[in-house]
Design a protein around this nucleic acid. Structure first.
Length: 312
RNA sequence: GCCUCGGUAGCUCAGUCGGUAGAGCAAGGGACUGAAAAUCCCUGUGUCGGUGGUUCGAUUCCACUCUGAGGCA
């Protein structure tokens, strides 16, 4: 009987120390890092995404970083395919893949048996509905109630982004989205899994976020954004809707002061970290490690121990 | 020194013709299947500045007091 391949996973809120611990464990366990970060996939978005530098990577191979053009939109489904291929590559080299990142949906797309429908995107269809919704708010949800009652019940009528996607799937396939997607909470993982969650007291996390934002600024975040815009990147591109980018763009457009932009980045990052915690807490497979409870080497010891036992 | 207007949720304020109070923002919690760093939902007990007085009952009225802003000397 074929045994599933092992996959070590490190999740947690932004600025929580995932990168450093992932590299440390890769060194100890003979691993390679698979990033699970929806912004670090884009080339050129380096500072704002806190992409690990060459020095921080310490010679450990990192996958799923710089693999998409920021002018194009990169989706979960793209991520799933390519990340799984990357993991297979790591296995074929006899190494341990370490999936590390804070984008919950991306992590789930890899570690759960999450099957995406074949339906891609239909931009014309989307534009049409955006227009209709503006003219008659609530019409998209009303249409979904007719097309896919089950999905409509799962969604809130105001969650236009999801309502629209469900409509799009029905439009492209002629079948309700709710019939095409399994319940990923109940699905079995394709891998032998060990999921470590990094956590710390909220107060400490927020202090670290503040530090990180200051660091990004002194590393030249404003110049990075200016450079991307100068290179012709559309400020409305999905890649630039990320934290830190949209606020700086608003500053460069003269819509707010730099101080306001920075304060907004801090606040939005705190909120984002909160949402990340909500996501990872929900997954019962996550085993939590409090970073503030011990020294860095001791933390690495504990997680190394956990991975070794859980992945046996 | 005198006069006026304030002191109510972490912040800015509303309100109670006397029956112990509510908005916005902040914050917290939750959801999450092709934009996910996105999108969306839910959540308001606080010595009503302090001490006395009147009253069945005071955050509300009265007195004193502390404190902030402005004005007059």
């Amino acid at each position: 009987m074929n045994r599933k391949q092992p996959l070590a996973v490190i999740v947690g809120p932004t600025a929580g120390g995932k990168t450093a611990i992932a590299v440390e464990l890769a060194k100890r366990l003979g691993g390679e890092v698979i990033s699970a970060d929806s912004v670090a996939v884009y080339t050129g978005l380096d500072i704002g995404s806190a992409k690990p530098t060459k020095a921080e990577r310490q010679g450990i191979p990192h996958h799923m970083i710089d693999c998409a053009d920021p002018a194009e939109s990169f989706t979960v489904s793209d991520y799933q395919q390519r990340a799984r291929a990357a993991i297979e590559g790591v296995h074929s080299r006899g190494n341990l893949p370490i999936l590390a990142g804070g984008t919950g949906l991306y992590v789930n797309a890899v570690i759960s048996d999450l099957g995406f429908t074949d339906a891609g995107r239909d931009e014309a269809f989307r534009l049409e509905w955006v227009k209709r919704e503006r003219e008659l708010p609530g019409s998209a949800y009303a249409a979904l109630e007719k097309a896919d009652q089950k999905r409509a019940k799962e969604l809130h009528r105001n969650d236009f982004q999801r309502v629209l996607r469900a409509l799009e799937v029905f439009h492209l396939t002629g079948r309700p989205m709710s019939e095409q997607n399994g319940d990923f909470q109940k699905s079995e993982s394709p891998y032998r899994l060990a999921v470590a969650g990094l956590t710390m007291p909220r107060e400490l996390l927020y202090a670290r976020i503040e530090q990180r934002v200051d660091q990004m600024l002194s590393n030249g975040l404003v110049l990075e954004v200016q450079g991307l815009l100068d290179a012709g990147l559309d400020p409305n591109a999905p890649s630039l809707q990320g934290l830190g980018y949209k606020e700086i763009i608003a500053y460069l457009a003269g819509k707010q002061t730099l101080e306001q932009a920075v304060e907004l980045i801090r606040q939005n990052t705190r909120r984002f970290a909160k949402r990340q915690l909500t996501w990872f807490r929900r997954d019962a497979r996550t085993v939590w490690f409090d970073v503030s409870e011990c020294s860095k080497p001791a933390l690495a010891d504990r997680i190394e121990d956990f991975f070794e036992h859980a992945l046996q």
